[in-house]
């Protein structure tokens, strides 16, 4: 049992946690968080592949590392867009609720 293997198993468990969050979260924000945890687990498993590919004087294979860095940034982009959509949706719903009470003539 090596350290890299341990992190690989942890990555698999994180994916499980993320799927559970995606399925059971009460609100959209919880689903976004679950999606991020799922992604973190997948990246960690890929990191274990990188660590096992250590060689030629590098502590870990640089190609998977670079792909994970790209993946983290793309996951952030998706998260930011999802969150912006969520905030706007809530603003629209709040406006609709207020509009139901009074100034319909405008």
């Amino acid at each position: 049992m090596t350290g890299a293997l341990l992190f690989g198993l942890a990555g698999a468990a994180l994916v499980g946690c993320g799927v559970y969050g995606l399925l059971t979260a009460p609100g959209a924000l919880g689903r976004v968080l679950g999606f991020n945890i799922l992604g973190g687990g997948v990246f960690l498993m890929f990191g274990v592949v990188a660590r096992r590919g250590a060689g030629a004087g590098f502590g870990a294979d640089p190609v998977p590392q670079a792909l994970v860095i790209t993946g983290i940034v793309v996951a952030f982009c998706a998260t930011a867009l999802a969150v912006a959509l969520l905030v706007r949706l809530c603003a629209v719903q709040a406006e609709a609720a207020r509009g139901g009470d009074g100034d319909k003539e405008t």
Binding site: L9, G16, V48, V63
Partner: peptide
Amino acid sequence: IAAALAAVVLALPEPAPSRAADVA
């Protein structure tokens, strides 16, 4: 899902494939 992925992690090929030598 987690158990299936754990099984995959335990079955990773030995020796591990690597592009480290190409990069170096």
